[in-house]
Amino acid sequence: MRHDRAGDSPLAEDVLAVEVSDLTVAYHTKPVLWDVDVTVPQGVLMAIVGPNGAGKTTLLKAILGLVPIAAGQVLIFGRPLPEMRHLVSYVPQRGSVDWDYPTTVLDVVLMGLYRRVGWIRRPGHAEREKAMEALHLVGMADFAKRQISQLSGGQQQRVFLARALVQDAKLFFMDEPFQGVDATTERAIIQILQRLRSEKKTVVVVHHDLQTVPEYFDWVTLINVRRIACGPVREVFTEQNLRAAYGGRMAFFIEQREEGC
């Protein structure tokens, strides 16, 4: 495993956590993301919102180098991703894996430390301790020895979160962490997001519940194949931008917001 330690020197405080410029991703000739620019300063909780098929997950995966990009550039703390991978953590969609896989909760969390352990070497006692700490943080310590097939959806999500937390990353990407989880889990996730922010970590979340955006996040990117807006929630989470992203489908939400105000 390559251990580029460019990120070990303290990061300049003003360097952007994520800087995406002119990003285009296409499947064959069909563009999924067109010339997208996104900047994420350090220490914010940012939501990526947009209608279904807007390319939210693709944006996340393109930043993480998981899908080929047709054009553009992605910088993580001012450097290309491969040099900064050790500072980056990823929580994929819960449904992207097979939960019948023969493994335990603790083993899944340990996977978050594989990179630090390196190729071939096995995680040891210190790593298990660390994984247990992360499970405590998400309220899943009692489930450490449990088979992952026995978990509820919310518990699965918290295990995924613990696997990301254990990495000691500075930048977190989460794909729909609130999707289909119970209220307890949603609160647990929110607490953890806020805790991460208080530790000056940066969190980017693909989110699709517009109602909770102003409450949970301080930064937002609206996309629909193209980038509609990117900035502080109170500046860019406006009716006009929402209409631009969602078109007619927004009417219901905007009425509700107005009633609530």
Partner: peptide, 12 residues
């Protein structure tokens, strides 16, 4: 085998 995308994000 469990989570290829996470493995890729980790550089594996």
């Amino acid at each position: 085998t469990f989570d290829p995308e996470f493995a890729a994000a980790q550089g594996f």
